[in-house]
Design a protein around this nucleic acid. Structure first.
Lengths: 337, 337
DNA sequence: CTGTTAGCGCCTTCAC
DNA sequence: GTGAAGGCGCTAACAG
């Protein structure tokens, strides 16, 4: 058998002609409910057989046009390069396939232009719903979906233009910080020397994590100081130098370290390696990565509860939920302690 | 503006009726080449305006049906959970978008059933070509594409059913092993105590890596022994115990360690951490991960050249290349040394 | 039990 | 300059 690039595909008309039946009979048979339409079994078998011989395959696009539904479901996210987004994509695909639809996941590299373009392509393809994760401007995309009457949901992103499913950053940060404080005190150190590292002040997630961090400190009777928080962004180089600066200023490591993302963590590890400084302090991280989990010191890692988030997201596709536009909070999971 | 889930979309007929023109005029204008058809500028502007007001959006599926091309391009891969596949997916999307198509990437978790089902869905959606990466049985999928007259290419996977683009495992392994031997000898140790760890004997990639490893040894005047190779699979637990077994049997670490995948590496790190054994030997890894790259010892990492691979893959979609079905080898990149 | 037919929304050739 | 009409492949009434 050789490649037959561009050869014309066989249609139900071809099959109908071959068995000398009508297209509707063929269609009925091919869609399985021939018994309901009391088509002779012999006819049905002949059709099935020749369809196979002719290599017939449905054209889902034609069917979709006829039925006014595409059978497609879309998701846009920034990239696949960390476990959270990778898990989101895979969980989305699974859920979509379970609903007998075909997933279209597209990454947009956090580029607003690309986000807009991709979203409009997906809507023009008539996806039946759209998941929006980690984009720069959810509101614009929500509006587009609204105009196209396509249900959508924001994931890991709060917004008022659609239902939103987000990790409970505050509660998670509170929990991890409490663990850290316990550990710090168990080793006889002071919770007055803790540090929050990473993120960008003003960002939704970062602000909530800081709030949780500070609340835990207050609950433990510690009076938060401004030098306990260092929002150095997401790049490893930045956290590396921010951490170095902290250590040099204080002449020692913090007693407990709350790291706000896996890339920030990378920077800390890089510092530790390059200066041969053992990280003998309590460490917690609001993110999870299998490699980081195997490092030479115990880290309390918070893993976003992707399964729950996606289940909730799928459930918010109903008309009522679409109208309600709630923000649904999902507590993350403490992975190590 | 409120959600209007399920409301009927506006079509070119609606626009035509609104401006009291014919659908063909509307179509012409909306597709931009109205000047070529010498449509009055005034008409054209009126159409554009009302189309916008009515919120008209093309239905790409209807257009596709009419033009017999879907505007869709498919890729199937096992998952997104390592950098290689994540990069593959993103590079694919970029290339596809550059060609003004819409990417559909679907992960199949290395499950043959799922692979088959997904492939047939994508073909039924009439993707214009299909990239196949890291699946269990490429031949079956190649055959399906062939029957559907859809060009396809195997990525990181050799096959005879379609052109294949694979990393040059042998050359890469040879290169890294040479580096390791240099390092081992530079520190006064013997290249007779090197170890290849990971992979599955009989697998294409593993076998080629072993071949490169052994060849480098031979070139360096070392006579390979069977206990220099331990194919312990891909799970971290397995490499962890396989490495432990090696160390216990020999009473010391190997002088140089060639690790065949990132998950194998994880297992080695886990062993090192749990036994407080410093990994003071030359280490090389046929895989790349940003976290691993920041670990407390220098590792020569080989990174698959995703960009080149994908470029070659895109180029092998032409009819001649489809018929030729070559296996194209792409050397990986040495990331650290 | 099976066939005819009218679209789904769009593009394109050919008339006018 | 613009409109009418056919058809992409499929489904679902509605007729027989």
């Amino acid at each position: 058998m050789t490649a037959r690039v561009g050869r014309k595909k066989t249609t139900i008309y071809d099959v109908a002609a071959a068995v000398d039946a009508s297209v509707s009979t063929v269609s009925l048979v091919l869609n399985g409910d021939w018994s309901r339409y009391r088509i002779k079994e012999e006819t049905s078998e002949r059709i099935l057989k020749t369809a196979r011989e002719l290599g017939y395959k449905v054209n889902l696009r034609a069917r979709g046009l006829r039925l006014s539904k595409s059978g497609l479901a879309g998701m846009i996210l920034p990239h696949y390069r960390n476990r959270f987004f990778a898990d989101l994509a895979e969980t989305f695909e699974l859920g979509v396939r379970k609903r007998n639809l075909c997933p279209i996941v597209v990454s947009t590299q956090r580029d607003v232009e690309v986000e807009l373009k991709v979203a409009s392509t997906l809507l023009a393809q008539r996806v039946e719903f759209l998941f929006i994760a980690g984009v720069a401007d959810p509101a614009a995309l929500n509006r587009m979906c609204d105009e196209a009457s396509v249900p959508c949901v924001n994931v890991d992103l709060p917004g008022t233009g659609a239902p939103s499913v987000v990790s409970d950053n505050r509660a998670g940060a509170l929990l991890v910080t409490q663990k850290l404080i316990d550990k710090v005190r168990a080793t006889g150190k002071s919770a007055n020397d803790m540090l929050f590292l990473g993120g960008v002040a003003g960002e939704y997630a970062t602000d909530n994590r800081i709030a949780g961090f500070l609340e835990a400190l207050r609950q433990a009777g510690v009076d938060p100081r401004s030098d306990m928080v260092s929002c150095c962004g997401y790049r490893p180089e930045n956290s590396s130098s921010a951490f170095r600066a902290y250590v040099e200023r204080h002449g020692k490591l913090p007693s407990g370290l709350f790291i706000s993302s896996i890339t920030t963590f990378e920077g800390v590890v890089r510092y530790s390696v390059s200066t041969a400084t053992a990280l003998d302090c309590a460490v917690g991280c609001f993110d999870w990565d299998p490699f980081a989990a195997d490092l030479p010191f115990t880290v309390a890692m918070l893993r976003q509860d992707v399964e729950s988030m996606m289940e909730i997201a799928f459930n918010s596709l109903t008309t009522e939920r679409q109208l309600a536009r709630d923000i649904l909070l999902v507590p993350p999971i403490l992975e190590r302690a």
